[in-house]
Structures are given as C-alpha cells and as structure tokens.
Design a protein around this nucleic acid. Structure first.
Lengths: 251, 251
DNA sequence: ATTCTTGATTTTGTCTGACATTATCTTAAC
DNA sequence: GTTAAGATAATGTCAGACAAAATCAAGAAT
C-alpha cells in the first residue's frame, strides 16, 4: 500500500489548528464572516480543508456560538462550505474575502430543480419534433457531426457537457426557430447554476448519453414521433436522476 | 379625515394573523421553510406583507425559536425577506422567485409571430396538463371565477383581453410551478407587442373564447387529457388566425 | 493477520430561557 | 399641530445543556 498524498490522513486537523491562530476578536458589523474570510486567506486554507469547530471560533472571536452558527449556515446555504456531524465544517468552494457578498446566487429552494426541468421538458420535446419535421440535409449533417464528437468524448471518459450542449444546439438550430435555442439555453443555465453549486456533481444526465445516438438519428431521418419519444425518455431519465440526488442530499 | 386605503394602518397584522392559521406542525428536515412557503401560498401573502413573529411561528410549528430563526435568516440572505427589529419579517420578493434567478430577458422583438406562437404552444399545453393533474379546490374555484368574469365581458362585447390573461394566469398558478406563468407571460407580451403594433387588430383569438369554458371546466375537474386536447385546439386556432392575418396583410 | 464489532469521542443539531437592542407606536407636553 | 418622551413589540444576542451522528480506536472473533 503506497501513500496517498491525495487524501492525507489528517490535514484537516493541522489546517484547523493553524487557522485558529488567524482569528482575531475585532467586533463590529458583519464580523464573523469577515473574520472567517480573513482566517481562510491568512491560513491559506483550500477546498477540502476543515474549519475550526463552532465553539472554538466562538471563543476566539468572543461571540456566542449561535452567531457563529448562523454565519456558517449562511455559507452552507451558499454552497461555500459543507457541514457534518463529526466531520465539521469543510470548505467546499474557494472563498474570496471580497467576493463573499456573492450577488445572491441562486439558492436551492427545494423543488427549483424539478420546476425548471418540468418547463424544459415540453420545450425540448417540441423542439426535436420540429427539427425532425423541418430537417434539411445541411442540418442533418451538422447534427450527426456533433453526435460523433459527443460520443468520442463520452467514450473516452472526458467532460462531455459542452459537446452535449452543442448537439442540442444543433437540433435547436434545425427547428428553424431560434426561440427554442434561446429559451432552452437560458433554462439550462439556470438549471446548472442551481445544480452544480450545491451538489458539485457534474455528471447529471450521464445515463442519457447513449440514448443521444438514437435521438440524433431519428431527427436526422425526419422521424418526428420517434424523436419526440426518445427525447421524452431522456427528459424522464434526467428527472429521475434529479429526484435521486435530491433524496440523497435530503433537499 | 378620509381613510387611506392605500397605506392602511395595519394590514400587516391582519396578514400576519391570517397567515398563522396556515401553519401546521409536520416535523422533518427542512420543515420550516416548506411550512412557511405553504403558509405564504395558503394565506395569499404578497410583497410587503408581514410574516408572523419568530416566536409565534416556533410555537405553531412546535420547534425552537432558534430553528425558525435560522430558516428566516436563510431567506434573508437570499433576499426573499427583510428583517427589522420592531417591523418584523417582511416579504421582499415572491417566494419562488429564487427558483428563477434567470435573467429571462428574452429578446422577442425581431422574431415572427409564428415563431413565438410555436414556443408558447407546448408550454401552454403542458401547463394545463399539470394544472389539471395538481388541481385543488381553491384553484378550481379561482379558475371558474375568472372564467365567469371573462365570459361576462365577452358576452357584453367588451375588451376581454385582460380577463383572458387573468384566466390563463389562474391556470398557471394551479400548476404549482411559477416558471410557466413567467415564461408564458413574457412570450405573450412579446407576441402582443409584435402583433398589435403592425396590425392594430386586437381581437386575435376571439374565436377561441367560447372554448375557454370547456378548458376551464376540464382543468377544474382534473381531466388532464381533455384539458390538453382543448388547449391544443385553442393554440391551433390562434395559429390559423395568425396565418390568415399575415396572408391578408401580405407579411 | 485480517475483519468485524463495539464503545468512546468529537462535532454539529436542537432546545430552553433570559436579556439587550431598536424601530415603531402612543401619549403627553409645549 | 408639532415635538419629545416613554411604552411596546419584535429581532438580536447570549449561555448552558443535551441529543444525534459520524469518526476513530481498541478489542474480539475468525
């Protein structure tokens, strides 16, 4: 058994202790988060490092534990840290002491993912239907080209998200109606913003990639019904995955 | 001294008391925010209305004040509510707006009527399907009320467009997914902008009004299939009308 | 020697009750 | 009528205790 420099045994504890020394009382408004930011910067904490326990922070900062708690929970809600019973509070995203005001990124309200998805679903289905109906040789070639790129990256185990997006964009283009592309793009962005931040699990939709071959072919061959059917199946699979993730994380 | 209906002295208090009755214990994780969401929806609270005080919520929900506090602070951080000492917690944004941080600045201007319509179509159909599936007595009553208003104005030969819009809004509300309302509203606005300016013929969709009775009833009775069918017919009729107008004016 | 179990420990999660602070409302004085 | 002082009601803060859960370590069983 070789050493595992990736997940060293107790870097957290070191980091946590080191970090504590960078905390100073200094009481004023917005103290806690600022102090923590300075601490993180000063102690050079990175993603995966552990923050000191609430009670230690509270003592060092000379405030009550409740106040520290609320501050840390605020960060948790922003996806900056994760919090677990014995594991403590762990940095999940880079924190820049200035950028903490984070302009109200999106927070995960319980069902926002599913809501977003349920709007995307009919649009995507209608889009492939239209694309199949209005398919031209030019667009068919474009779609099959994008499919090829996607499958190459997917088979190689790379990050297929961009390629996936390009394939869908090609299909939207084939509808002859740019509104579909615009709308679905925006919805998709909203979806990703909601999803990636809190869960940090980029592989949502992975299972649907193999289905994309059949989808692209159906569209290229002009088979409206089949294309719509496959897209419906893809959308349902995504929904299932979303529900599973939500369950896992008890959202 | 005349009364001031605009800034009534204590509407908050009314709202706050009314709201309290929509709170139910139900304990699990993430309870508090969910319960509050339901409360806001149930009591029909809007921007500017006041939530009950922390302690009242805590008692009603049978949890500690600290827990309620953390939940409310989370919403505060999201910009959903504002909190002040004596003023209490006040709704600052629609609760579900956080699900939709998307800019949603659709540039519909240049697009043609038909393009707009073909995006609206699947959304409206899916919306009535969802509305019928999730229909509640409250929403059913709301929809039928709006239908009555619409038909009264229509029969009297008045300008029914606002009433029509209100009916559709009620249906969107019944879906439980505010994204539908937002999207369709924007698309509809784009549609109107494009249409009214060049053609100045406000009665587009006139023929579909009689169908709205059947639509509203189908939704209210929870008949997904029938509702979707009728909506599809309505959308097709609108499309036919648009084509006719375009032909007439040689667009 | 390895695996499994069991218990101790640490940390967050929750509750309780009290007091401080402050924005608003009320009342009284000018 | 306007201003000023006090009462009030809400959030803000604190301290201390216990519960729950994840990790860690030691010992037992294979």
């Amino acid at each position: 058994m070789s050493d595992q420099p990736d997940k060293s045994p107790s870097p957290d504890k070191d980091a946590s202790a080191r970090a504590l020394e960078h905390l100073e009382p200094g009481n004023s408004r917005r103290t806690v988060l600022d102090a923590l930011s300075r601490m993180i910067e000063g102690a050079q904490l990175g993603v995966g490092d552990r923050l000191p326990p609430e009670i230690a922070i509270a003592r060092k900062l000379e405030v009550s534990r409740a106040k520290v708690r609320e501050a840390l929970i605020a960060w948790q809600n922003m996806g900056i840290v994760t919090r677990n019973k014995k594991a403590g509070t762990v940095l999940a995203a880079e924190v820049f002491s200035n950028a903490i005001h984070m302009p109200m990124t999106l927070k995960l309200e319980a069902e926002s993912l599913l809501r977003t998805h349920s709007v995307r679903r009919p649009l995507e289905i209608e889009a492939v239907r239209l694309a199949a109906r209005n398919i031209t040789e030019h667009h068919a070639r474009l779609i099959m080209g994008r499919l090829e790129e996607l499958m190459a990256i997917y088979d190689a185990g790379g990050d297929w998200r961009h390629a996936d997006h390009m394939l869908h964009a090609a299909i939207h283009a084939a509808t002859g109606n740019p509104l579909f592309a615009q709308l679905v793009l925006q919805i998709q962005q909203g979806f990703n913003e909601i999803y990636e931040a809190p869960f940090g699990q980029p592989q949502l939709g992975q299972n649907t990639i193999p289905l994309h071959s059949a989808l692209a072919e159906a569209v290229a061959r002009g088979d409206e019904t089949n294309a719509a059917e496959i897209m419906a199946r893809i959308m349902d699979m995504v929904e299932t995955e979303v529900r599973k993730v939500m369950e896992t994380y008890d959202v």
